[in-house]
């Protein structure tokens, strides 16, 4: 027997039920035999939410579409000297330098926690050689609590070859297929904006077997302390993130969406639902929130709310209807 009194509760519940009929699901790896389905398009970007557990004390991160954990390497890394952060106009320079606990500690301490989470956790994998990437990816195989790999071929803060993987289509493709060969997990490749033609790199890794692409990582930059006459960051240079790079990221998503056949994840300066929707309309199937998490730990959830509200107001029931609409209208 249905309790009609419950069905007649006022507008808040109507809003909820309206949201329930919204389809926010995203298939991030349609080419993959297992697929990678997110409950919604809002992801936490690598490097800004640590291993997820830190933010779980403040925010209900289980409501996110996915969490991308901090870039992980084979051995622990101590990162770059202080200062590592520098605020700029509408942006943030960082030179953390991939400080991380290493794959062994990740498997021992973090993965068991993730195994109990609803939200998929994607592990961002970084390295200095193809062999290191392969070693890390191999260790992730069959570990409960890990839903995918995001290949970090674009961190601007380590002084080795990683950036070259991101800047060279042939190397990027070679790395992608090498990792693909040792894992059954879906592979997302995170691209660098610090290249001449991002479309070329995108197509190369797509052909090499990438299941999805994240665009973009930070833009290389620096700041100088004029009182001391020296660079502000301990590492001299860093990666720029935040709203300052949003137009750059949006343009790159828009351009790559014209040629790529795999899902794109928009990332770069997304701080509100409007930003997120711009990326989706440019052609992104999902988005990542990074620097905005530092400004407001609840940013991602506010953005998710805003996307749902927008769809409700426009009478759109399925998020996929919005993906790439700006391509058709330009």
């Amino acid at each position: 027997m249905v309790n009609h009194a419950i069905l007649k509760l006022p507008c808040y519940n109507e809003v909820l039920s309206m949201k329930n009929i919204l389809d926010l699901h995203v298939q991030l790896a349609p080419r993959h035999y297992k697929g990678l389905i997110l409950a919604n398009p809002v992801m936490a970007a690598a490097g800004t939410v640590g291993y997820g557990v830190e933010y779980s004390k403040i925010v209900d991160i289980q409501k996110l579409g996915a969490i991308v954990c901090k870039g992980i390497t084979l051995m622990p890394r101590s990162g770059n000297p202080q200062p590592r952060l520098m605020e700029t106009a509408s942006g943030l320079l960082n030179s953390v330098g991939l400080e991380n606990i290493g794959i062994a500690a990740l498997l021992e301490d973090k993965a068991p926690i993730w195994a109990n989470w609803q939200v998929p956790v994607i592990v961002n994998v970084a390295g200095e050689t193809i062999d290191e990437y392969i070693a890390v990816a191999s260790k992730l195989e069959g570990i409960p609590g890990i839903s995918g790999i995001e290949l970090n071929i674009s961190c601007p803060n380590i002084s080795t070859n990683s950036m070259e993987f991101g800047a060279n289509p042939r190397l990027a493709a070679k790395l992608t297929s090498a990792v693909k060969a040792v894992t059954s997990l879906p592979i997302i490749v995170k691209l660098s904006p610090n290249v001449t033609d991002i479309k070329e790199i995108a197509l190369a890794v797509e052909e090499a077997g990438a299941d999805a692409l994240t665009l973009i990582n930070t833009v290389k930059g620096m700041a100088i302390d004029i009182a001391k006459g020296k660079p502000c960051l301990g590492n001299t240079t860093g990666g720029l993130s935040g709203p300052a790079i949003k137009p750059i990221a949006l343009y790159m998503v828009y351009e790559v969406a014209k040629v790529a056949h795999i899902p794109l994840i928009g990332c770069g300066g997304i701080a509100c639902a409007t930003d997120a929707l711009e990326f989706i309309m440019a052609g992104a199937s999902a988005i990542q929130v990074g620097t905005a998490n530092l400004t407001n730990p609840h940013s991602s959830l506010v953005i998710l709310e805003g996307i749902a509200d927008f769809m409700k107001n426009k009478g759109i029931t399925n998020l996929t209807e919005l993906v790439g609409v700006a391509q058709d209208n330009s």
Binding site: E54, Y55, K70, G79, Q82, R84, L85, P297
Partner: peptide, 17 residues
């Protein structure tokens, strides 16, 4: 006192040795 990012131990912006 150093420059802090997240304030909750997630971003590794404030690490010292």
């Amino acid at each position: 006192e150093v420059r802090l990012g997240c304030g909750i131990g997630a971003c590794y912006g404030c690490t010292i040795n």
